[in-house]
Simulated assay, not measured.
Amino acid sequence: MGDLLLIFAAALGAASGVGAAGALALRALRGRSVTVHVVALLTVTVAAVVAGVVVVAEAMFLSAHDLEVVLITVSAAAVVSLAMGWLFGRRLAAAAVWADQARQRERRVEQGRRDLVAWVSHDLRTPLAGLRAMAEALEDRVVRDPATVAEYHRRIRVETDRMARLVDDLFELSRINAGALRLSLAAVPLRDVVSDALAGTAPLAAARRIRLEAAEQGWPTVVASEPELARVVGNLLVNAVRYTPDDGTVRVESGRDAESAWLAVTDTCGGIPERDLSRLFEVAFRGEPARTPRPRDGGAAPSGGLGLAIVRGLVEAHGGRVEVHNVAGGCRFVVRLRPAGT
Rank of each mutant, 00 (worst) to 15 (best):
M1N: 10
I7D: 15
I7W: 10
A10G: 05
A10N: 03
G13K: 06
A15E: 11
S16W: 10
S16Y: 09
V18H: 01
R27A: 13
A28D: 11
L29I: 13
T35H: 07
V36A: 00
A40F: 06
V46P: 02
V46Q: 15
A48G: 11
V49S: 03
V50R: 04
A51E: 04
F61K: 15
S63T: 15
S63V: 07
H65Y: 14
V70G: 00
L71M: 08
A77S: 10
V79A: 05
V80M: 11
W86I: 05
F88G: 08
F88M: 08
R91A: 10
R91T: 12
R91G: 08
A94Y: 09
V97E: 15
D100I: 14
Q101A: 08
R113S: 02
D115A: 11
V120T: 14
S121Q: 14
D123N: 15
A133C: 05
E136T: 10
A137K: 02
P146R: 00
V149I: 08
I156R: 00
A164S: 13
V167R: 09
D169C: 02
A178T: 12
A178Y: 09
R182I: 15
P189L: 04
S195V: 09
A199P: 02
A199T: 14
T201F: 02
A202P: 04
E213L: 13
E216Y: 00
V223A: 07
V223K: 03
P227R: 01
L237S: 02
V238Q: 11
N239V: 08
V252T: 02
D267H: 04
C269N: 13
G271Q: 03
R279L: 13
E282A: 09
E288S: 07
A290L: 13
P295D: 08
S303H: 10
G305N: 03
A309M: 05
I310Q: 01
I310T: 05
R312T: 06
L314W: 01
V315H: 00
E316M: 02
V327Y: 08
A328F: 02
L337Y: 01
G341C: 07
